[in-house]
């Protein structure tokens, strides 16, 4: 079977290679999954290039998530059987044809488009938990986010709509305004120095109750200025190499705090049943078409070098997610 791996850090398209490996037979408590699709995240590229704090033990197989179906079941596995569609565990190294993993860490996957569903384990819970756990958001409240055209950003628009929460969506490219409005974004604005004035104008003077930042640098500060006194800036992503900036006067005069979002921490506060219930709810939202990712291109695993090159582009040159398919 094909496995995409890297044995040294460097430019992703140079260091990633396809090798042939034997699939280990499932031991007791394990299953073997035949992968259908797996997305390329920025974090995969950061790991391959060896960016600080993204270093992985080498050799490494990228792929934080994906979708597939079970083709073999080890001894003692009763809850799954061959043919079941599943999500393998997070950070399993999903860029391969087959993977043998513990049956305990699987999540059931619904029917539907493999490329879309391959994105379900990571980004949708992020957007879900941001809206659920922070800012005490109620029907009619405003939330502001930058990187609104990112995969998380788009899910956040769709999930906020369901809850009656209004979104102010900050983007860098004006051509995204109509697209994100169509997706359900209430206000879409191009980032800039006078952002807070334009936000207040668009919301009729109502400040946002939560700011969601994936850009960092002064973009964090620009979101903070749009908040009501006593509110929170939640940083969940890192699209620039700048630290998050929060002007002291905004922090102390207006009681704005800055914290980091980490899905694992929010899930850790919940029972396994509650986590499962969230995934069940999200799976339904995929099935009924409420949650949709923008997919820029799909590549066969054989073309992984081209795929990572495409995934490394920014802005209009990569309009959506890049998905690897194993069929």
């Amino acid at each position: 079977m094909r496995v995409a791996r890297y044995t040294r850090n460097g430019d992703p398209s140079s260091v990633i290679e396809i090798v042939d490996e034997e699939t280990p037979a499932p031991q007791a408590g394990e299953v073997t999954i035949r992968m259908e699709a797996a997305p390329i995240h920025l974090a995969d590229l950061y790991c391959m290039s060896g960016k600080e704090r993204f270093e992985m033990p080498l050799p490494a197989v990228p792929g934080f998530e994906g979708i597939g179906h079970i083709i073999a079941v080890g001894e003692g596995v009763t809850s799954w059987s061959a043919g079941d569609r599943v999500f393998p565990p997070i950070a399993c190294g999903a860029w391969r044809d087959e993977i043998t993993v513990s049956a305990a860490d699987l999540l059931p996957a619904p029917d539907g488009d493999a490329a879309q569903l391959s994105l379900m384990p990571i980004n949708p819970p992020t957007s879900y938990l941001i809206l659920e756990d922070f800012g005490d958001l109620k029907d009619g409240d405003w939330v502001i986010q930058n990187a609104a055209n990112s995969n998380c950003g788009r899910y956040l628009i769709e999930l906020a709509k369901l809850r009656g929460i209004k979104t102010i969506n900050v983007v860098r490219r004006p051509e995204l305004i109509d697209e994100l409005r169509e997706l359900g974004g209430d206000v879409v604005l191009v980032d800039g120095d006078d952002l807070s004035d334009r936000v207040l104008k668009a919301t009729g003077g109502v400040p946002a109750k939560l700011a969601v930042d994936a850009v960092n640098g002064m973009a964090t500060a620009r979101l903070a200025e749009c908040l009501a006194d006593g509110s929170t800036v939640l940083a969940y992503g890192v699209l620039t190499d700048e630290p998050c900036m929060l002007p002291s006067d905004v922090a102390f005069l207006r009681d704005i705090r800055l914290i980091g979002f980490y899905t694992v921490r929010q899930f850790a506060k919940r029972s396994p049943e509650a986590v499962k219930a969230i995934y069940t709810e999200l799976a339904q939202l995929f099935e009924d078409g409420t949650l949709t990712a923008k997919i820029a291109a799909t590549y066969s695993l054989d073309d992984v070098k081209e795929a990572v090159t495409h995934a490394g582009r920014r802005g209009a040159e990569r309009d959506g997610k890049i998905i690897l398919t194993m069929t």
Binding site: N216, C244, M245, S248, A251, F252, D255, R257, I259, G260
Partner: peptide, 29 residues
């Protein structure tokens, strides 16, 4: 807890300190 800015710069914290180390930055008045 930030309560002044004698550097004249905005408070700055890398994402990873917020994310991995669960640091909160807050202002005081």
């Amino acid at each position: 807890v930030n309560y002044g800015f004698i550097s004249g710069e905005p408070c700055s914290i890398p994402f990873h300190d917020l994310f991995f180390n669960n640091i909160t930055l807050t202002g005081m008045s």
